[in-house]
């Protein structure tokens, strides 16, 4: 664990222990602590996710990244502190570390069902775009429980994107995905944030998104160790922060 000062020492330009100074459409955690029994997953953490940014949430395994995403997605409530969403209508799409879909439905059926949850869904063409951009087309009519690991991960990504959310939370989105698909997906996500949308990627593999990151937050053992712009050599920056 690091103390609060280390956040500023590391060059943060906005993060602090106080409420983030977010703008009108940001998503933020304010003084959030999350405990599971005796275990503290996150400790008094404040963090803001701004529109139009590609935000890297980096940290080693078990550092609290998935818990932080679960809080942002509303799957769990903080033990103390609060989640602030300036625009209550702005929705959140979540791609889970372990894919979550209806196993007995095909890829296309899964996408159609989850598209049906949206009051004002994107046009049908959006589904086709996702199938193409995520390289899901070859498996579109296959049952989800018969897919390989890479396709499962891409389907989960597609489900997070199907409602074209304002905030896109991606937990290790490229795990098991082949190199060609990785490049396609990374490029697609890069363009996704251009419409003032926010892409938050949680990973322990910072190199995979080094070229896309606008902002970097490093969480270690439930504590925010750095929040600010990524250095040119983000991999080296991350290693330094871990030491």
């Amino acid at each position: 664990m690091t103390d609060a000062d280390s956040t500023h020492d590391a060059g943060s330009d906005s993060a602090s222990r106080d409420a983030p100074d977010g703008d009108d459409s940001s998503l933020a955690l304010v003084d959030v602590t999350k405990r599971y029994g005796e275990t503290t997953a996150l400790e008094d953490l404040s963090l803001e996710f701004r529109p139009g940014t590609f935000h890297g949430l980096i940290g080693p395994n078990g550092s609290g990244k998935t818990t932080l995403f679960a809080l942002l997605a509303g799957l769990t409530q903080p033990t103390s502190g609060r989640i602030e969403r300036a625009d209550a209508t702005a929705d959140v799409g979540y791609s889970f570390q372990e894919p979550r879909f209806y196993p007995s439905l095909t890829v296309r059926e899964n996408l159609e069902i989850f598209r049906g949850f949206v009051d004002d869904p994107p046009p049908d063409a959006w589904t086709e775009t996702l199938l193409e951009e995520l390289r899901l087309e070859p498996a579109a009519d296959r049952r989800a429980d018969e897919l390989s690991g890479g396709f499962r991960k891409k389907l989960d990504l597609g489900l997070a994107l199907i409602k074209r959310p304002q905030y896109l939370l991606l937990d290790e989105p490229l795990a098991d995905v082949d190199d060609y698909s990785r490049r396609r997906i990374t490029s697609f996500l890069d363009s996704y944030r251009e419409a003032d949308r926010t892409v938050v990627v949680s990973t322990h593999n910072v190199a995979a998104f080094a070229d896309q990151l606008d902002r970097l937050s490093v969480v270690v053992d439930g504590d925010l160790r750095y929040d600010g712009p990524p250095a040119e050599d983000v991999v080296s920056q991350y290693r330094t922060l871990l030491e």
Binding site: L75, G93, F96, P99, R100, F114, F117
Partner: peptide
């Protein structure tokens, strides 16, 4: 129970 994994996603939508 057979759909327990998808319950997490469903809770983000409903």
């Amino acid at each position: 129970r057979s759909e327990r994994l998808v319950l997490d996603r469903l809770q983000t939508e409903s």
